[in-house]
Design a protein around this nucleic acid. Structure first.
Length: 309
DNA sequence: TTGTGTTTTATTGCCTCC
DNA sequence: GGAGGCAATAAAACACAA
């Protein structure tokens, strides 16, 4: 087929355009100006919106070369949806890239150039915007997911570091409180409890307290520390963290923590954008390594575990 | 060829803006 | 109130495996 292929409506009825209620051919026009000749696209016969936008060039010269058979084909085809041609879609895509909204003038111009009805162009842009939005949401989801994974990895690492440091502190104090062998003989309870009590009263520099641990937990801690056996109790976190270090050279040094609380806070600020993370107590830790045990830290002492706000 | 899933075109109904 | 946008949806067209 050669020549133009714009179909333009002259009716002025509004947007509800069922193809069955309109006179079949009274709104079909051709334009010699469309380069998208031979397009498989066709317009539903009843579409009328934008009729005012039709100018003379739309009505002119249907097939000056007498290609009436092709046009008859068009006119006698049952009303079906037809896909736009590759060229038409490419043209529309290009136009969409420039501006994804369609002002009336541009709609008319595009329709004229593509041999489509303005309403078809409008519908195409509408659907295209919907597709773009969906894609955009997928992209946003992916990037959010990626940054979440990164942050969570950082968070987990930092948590492990903190646990390791706390473990060092606790074990160091135990050493400080007296003779280990005596503790072995007399049971760990007394010195450990004293150590913990002291720790709790030491103030900002060493806010370590596992006072929430029950007596049985303390006993269990003893076996954890000396037997390296798994414990389901609240010391499990500390124990596991100790084991995770893979360093068997942990000795009971005097209470000289290598990192002060301030330094730890600074570390947190440096490594972890605290404005992103929720407070510790607001987080669901069910998928973290040690579940919801909170490492035996009583609620009132958990402040030192939460990120600075 | 056919069944099935996906994509594209078009409609409908509702909402907002002027 | 009309025009235009959007979400939801229908339905035709298409792709593709069996």
């Amino acid at each position: 087929m050669a020549g133009g292929s714009v179909f333009c409506s002259t009716s002025s009825s509004s947007s509800n355009l069922t193809t069955t209620t309109q006179p079949p051919l009274d709104s079909l026009f051709l334009s010699a100006s469309s380069p998208f000749l031979g397009s498989r696209s066709i317009v539903s016969f009843g579409d009328v919106q934008g009729g005012k936008g039709c100018n003379d060039s739309f009505f002119s010269s249907y097939d000056e070369h007498g290609d009436h058979e092709d046009m008859d084909e068009y006119f006698h085809q049952p009303e079906k949806k037809r896909r736009l041609s590759v060229e038409q879609v490419r043209f529309l895509e290009k136009s969409f890239d420039e501006e994804n909204k369609l002002e009336p003038e541009r709609k008319i111009r595009l329709a004229k150039e593509l041999g489509l009805q303005p309403r078809q162009v409008a519908i195409w842009f509408q659907n295209r915007r919907a597709r773009w939005k969906t894609k955009q949401m997928e992209k946003d989801y992916d990037s959010l997911q990626a940054s979440y994974n990164d942050l969570k990895a950082n968070y987990d690492n930092l948590l492990r570091e903190k646990v390791a440091r706390l473990t060092e502190k606790v074990l160091g104090r135990k050493k400080n409180e007296g003779n280990l062998e005596q503790a072995e003989t007399n049971g760990l309870q007394e010195p450990l409890q004293k150590s913990l009590a002291d720790s709790a009263s030491e103030g900002e520099g060493s806010k370590v307290s596992i006072g929430a641990c029950k007596q049985e937990d303390i006993n269990s801690a003893k076996s954890d520390i000396f037997d390296s056996s798994e414990s389901p109790h609240c010391t499990d976190g500390i124990h596991s963290a100790l084991l995770e270090t893979g360093d068997s050279s942990y000795v009971f040094e005097p209470d000289q923590s290598d990192v002060s609380q301030d330094e730890e806070d600074n570390l947190s600020k440096t490594l972890l954008p605290h404005y992103i993370f929720p407070k510790l107590e607001d987080v669901d830790y069910s998928d973290l390594p040690h579940g919801s045990c909170n490492f035996g830290i009583p609620e009132e002492d958990q402040a030192i575990w939460s990120w600075p706000y």
